[in-house]
Design a protein around this nucleic acid. Structure first.
Lengths: 121, 121
DNA sequence: GGCTTTATTTTACGTTTGTAATAGTAATTG
DNA sequence: CAATTACTATTACAAACGTAAAATAAAGCC
């Protein structure tokens, strides 16, 4: 079961700080999404049902924390895009970006350093 | 208006060859998706409504061709992922992949060549 | 111990998506 | 020209999503 775009915004805040009460999550999201509290609670419940997060009772409320790891989510999403659009190969993807939105000097330097390192391993 | 995953499979075949009749599309998809003809026709009609493709009458049937360009679609998808998950920066994305699924020698060489070229421009 | 507050659980509702079947129409053929 | 064939257009329907309001339940206060 995959998590939706809206749900992933909720995951974001839980990945940043953990565990959180529902109210904490609402506060944290205040700046990023124009959602009513009720909406956020719905999303929390859907994430629970999908086992992407867990809830532990703490007195009268719950403490939520992620079960799904950010790295795993990021990988699943990235890999799927890479496979669908670039035949699973990274170089073409980088090439695509560089063709589209000129990479800055810094980006290039950063990439260069990274590749050097990979190359020497 | 964005096109869905299923719809993008239809776009794929139209990007490969163009224009095509509905029946051509059905044939082309036979190997890639287990869809009934009716399903594919629905997808074609939705793509039409979304203006991602155009249809031109040809006698009793239509010839379909893409309006949305593959490069634009690819870019929109990739950019959105890059922004959502890697703060819009490419190096971290490459780093992520290299950490997750060891890049092959060839991949690295390919990347290296690419970066060299970018660096000298 | 009722009333209010606070937090959770249930229910709602319009869209989009995946997946298709059915109805309608134009062309072809006997 | 009536019947069949080929296509297209309309309709269907359940699940997922975005977005939220209403109903409960539990706790604290007067």
């Amino acid at each position: 079961m995959t998590i939706s775009d809206a749900e992933s915004l909720v995951m974001d805040v839980l990945w940043e700080s953990q565990p959180m009460t529902a109210d904490d999550v609402v506060q944290a999201l205040a700046g990023r999404a124009a959602w009513q509290e009720a909406t956020i609670r719905t999303l929390l419940n859907r994430l629970l049902k999908k086992k992407a997060i867990a809830a532990e009772r703490d007195g009268r409320r719950y403490l939520y924390r992620p079960l799904l790891k950010r790295a795993d989510y990021v990988h699943a999403e990235s890999k799927s895009l890479l496979d669908r659009l670039f035949d699973g190969r990274i170089a073409p993807m980088v090439a695509h970006f560089s063709a589209r939105q000129k990479l800055g000097k810094k980006e290039i330097a950063e990439l260069k350093r990274l590749i050097e390192k990979l190359d020497h391993e």
